[in-house]
Nucleic acid binder design. Structure first.
Lengths: 258, 258
DNA sequence: TTTAACGACTGAGTGATATTCATCATATAT
DNA sequence: ATATATGATGAATATCACTCAGTCGTTAAA
């Protein structure tokens, strides 16, 4: 409710200044940039603590110490501990979405895209598993999650998957089965649950991740790779649908030209 | 490590009680019963608060008030807030496993069993969604989750699913594909993630639950039903007609251009 | 019966932690 | 140079999990 607290909702802006400003803010750029870099420092410090020790075990004084500010200062930038955690989460989602988009763009087929997304998601959440706590326990349940910043960022992130899936259906590589959101839930739900299993196995190797990823994608794709098996009616229809879809693509391409 | 706190493990230990009862029939029994009913009251009160307000927002004094005991008394029965939450979770798992076993026994085919298990799980966790917080955030992460009571109860619960799946493979109703634990993760992960989606939809109907359940089971079963259908001549002709039509579209398109 | 021991329970007290607020410090504007 | 707004501080407050010295009633020993 205070004036400076409103700044807390801002996101990226990378101008990183020297961090030796813990005591006497002598040199530096504009006032605005100084404030921004302090906010960044707080988020970085909070991120470190949260991923290392989890939400409940992380104390505000610990974050303040790491960030080189007083405890009260934290509350100039974020209304409370939850808001600070949400800011950390927002930064995480931004990174996640960016790398996902870049990776997908490099893939050719739908299978490759899905496998990339699955592996990317799984490895990311294994690395920052503690942040998932926040989503599950504090953030998603409290108040109106829908409409919040985190909700929007989550939508943007899963939209990457949605686009790949829709495109796959459009190109005939995936059969047009269930509603989109069900497949999305299966995708992300499986990965987040698998994370727990992998973390508990004594030696969770690269191989395990690959196994999960390929199996999941195989299921979602409808097992298009069953070559040696005899032709079923369903296979036949699927094949024709792909020809159909290809023709439609050409049609639309041609229409767009004229 | 106090004397009365050891009771907190509240599993069966009836033999000792029986002996004591045979020696001193009336007084020992009543005292024991009084203690037991008080423990039950505490667990019930904790369950109410936890499911209503979640772990962090539930206070020990609130539980004590609901249970009709002093705050300190809670610590005679459970070492700390986490242990109390675990006891609540243990009771939940017991109910869940029991009803799952009973329901599966009534089903004939593997598909029916899986669909029952999926619906049962989904409806249960929607009803007691706050308890999942405990599993994800506090219980599973702290200390040695593996080897704990909750871990064992979880194993016993998912074993119901494992048995159904193994049986399905054995009977040839499911193809022998990936490792068992991957399919298990896909099953429970999808359902728990779907729960969140369903809870957020304005009107999450019975229909949505059914859609999730059938789609998930369909994926896991590998569509063994449609795969075995032979191709009929009529199917083939219809398919070729579609390819023909697609070709015609392209022809017309090409003519229109020139 | 008297009395000592015991088991069950209590609630004021303790320490830790999130959050507030009166106060101070610096930079920019006048 | 002075004033004002902006930013920062940390002691004080409130809340909560958890402790412990002590109460009360029952049982067993005297």
């Amino acid at each position: 409710m205070k004036q400076p607290a409103k700044r807390a909702s801002q996101t990226q802006k990378k101008s990183r200044v020297a961090k030796a400003r813990s005591r006497h803010p002598l040199p530096a750029a504009t006032r605005r940039e100084r404030v921004q870099s302090k906010e960044d420092a707080i988020i970085v410090a909070a991120h470190k603590s949260l991923t290392a020790r989890g939400f409940t075990k992380t104390t505000m004084s610990e974050i303040a110490r790491k960030a080189g500010v007083a405890e009260g200062t934290l509350y100039l930038y974020f209304n409370n501990k939850n808001a600070l955690a949400r800011a950390v989460l927002a930064a995480f989602y931004t990174r996640l979405t960016d790398t996902a988009k870049i990776g997908v763009a490099k893939c050719a087929t739908t299978t490759e895209k899905l496998e990339f997304l699955a592996r990317h998601h799984l490895e990311s959440i294994i690395g920052e598993r503690r942040l998932l706590e926040l989503i599950a326990s504090d953030v998603r349940n409290t108040e109106a999650y829908e409409g919040s910043d985190i909700y929007k960022m989550n939508r943007e992130y899963v939209a990457v998957f949605d686009d790949v899936l829709r495109d796959g259906v459009w190109r005939g590589e995936i059969e047009d089965g269930a509603v989109q959101w069900i497949k999305r839930d299966i995708f992300f739900g499986s990965l987040e649950y698998s994370m727990r299993t992998l973390l508990m196995k004594k030696r969770s190797s690269k191989k395990d991740i690959t196994a999960v990823v390929t199996e999941l994608v195989k299921l979602l794709m409808g097992r298009a790779d069953t070559r040696t098996e005899p032709v079923s009616n369903r296979d036949l229809i699927k094949a024709v649908e792909r020809v159909d879809a290809a023709a439609s693509r050409l049609e639309r391409l041609s229409e767009a030209k004229t």
